[in-house]
Simulated scan of single mutants.
Amino acid sequence: MYFQHSPRIRAEHPDLVVGVLYAEGVAGEPRVDLPVADLHAVARERLTTGSEGGFPEIQAWRRAFARMGLAPTRYRCASESLLRRLRTEGTLPVLHPLVDLGNAVSAAYAIPVGILDVDHVAGGIEVRHAQGDERYLTFTGAEEHPDPDEVVFADEAGRAHARRWTNRQSGWSAVRDGTSRILVVVEAMHAGADRDVPRLLDTLAGELTRGWGVAVRRALLGAATPRFAA
């Protein structure tokens, strides 16, 4: 299992800061209560100062989406969508302990967090521009083909595990009951991302260890270390 960004992605987005985390043995319920409500409270407190669209973390992703030709208020990064829902509805849905934790951390830090079930990824993941023949599975079970040149999470079998980069994850590798091995991907582009991404990884790693008693591997990816292998 590996994870990397294509050279073109790196060249077009030089401010990109990437953190990855790999863990095994996270099936079942956590053995302790996770601080999901506390993380929601952190996000809500920040939202009292203004809407999520003004956060520098979100602004950076909006600029990136605009560079990709996507309308930023039509296609939002995952963390913006979570914050918007938290602001308008007051809470986030309860889905699965791992997903709920990832969503809460994402909202608290205003940074997209993707969690993939490694057992449903063929070979590894490269974030790259789509050719247009990749297969994307929606959460309702329908298959789509990404637009040519769209940024996707592609595996070696030609499956797209995310569309429009951090906009929408796929059903192929979504966390489900029985998920045991996960790869967590954290991506940011704002000023201070080199400080915030490691802090986010620390938070998530600590809660995975506390909740499931597992050891985690994590890394920051950049020009010198562009690839993570598990």
Rank of each mutant, 00 (worst) to 15 (best):
E57V: 07
T88I: 09
A191W: 00
H40K: 12
D15K: 10
E156I: 03
D147R: 15
P198H: 10
H161M: 06
R135M: 03
E207R: 05
V94H: 10
G53W: 06
E80R: 12
N103W: 06
S51W: 03
S81L: 05
R163K: 10
R67W: 02
P7H: 06
V197T: 11
T209K: 11
D177W: 03
T138D: 15
L86K: 09
P148C: 09
A64I: 04
L21T: 08
L204G: 05
G192I: 10
L47D: 09
G114H: 11
L21M: 11
I9S: 01
G19E: 07
P148F: 08
G171A: 09
V32M: 08
G19D: 09
S79Y: 02
L208E: 12
V18D: 00
R46Y: 05
V185P: 01
R76G: 02
T179Q: 02
H190F: 03
G206D: 09
G206V: 13
A37W: 02
A223Y: 01
P7Q: 10
T49I: 00
R31Q: 14
H145F: 01
Y136I: 09
V42S: 10
V152P: 05
P35H: 12
A157Q: 10
T140K: 14
R10L: 05
V216E: 11
L200I: 06
G211E: 07
E45T: 15
S106K: 01
I182V: 15
S51L: 04
R74I: 12
P146T: 12
A188D: 10
W61V: 08
E80I: 04
V20I: 08
R31T: 15
A142W: 09
D194S: 13
A191F: 02
E156Y: 00
G25Y: 02
L101R: 10
F65I: 01
V118T: 11
G25T: 07
A230D: 09
R10W: 04
H96G: 07
R164Q: 13
D196C: 05
V175C: 07
D194F: 02
A71R: 13
V216C: 15
G178M: 07
G50R: 10
G19H: 04
D100M: 04
A122T: 11
A205I: 07
H120S: 12
N167I: 08
F139I: 14
V105F: 01
R31L: 06
L183N: 04
T140N: 14
E29T: 14
D194P: 00
G171H: 07
D38T: 12
E207M: 01
I125C: 01
M68Q: 14
R218Q: 15
L47C: 03
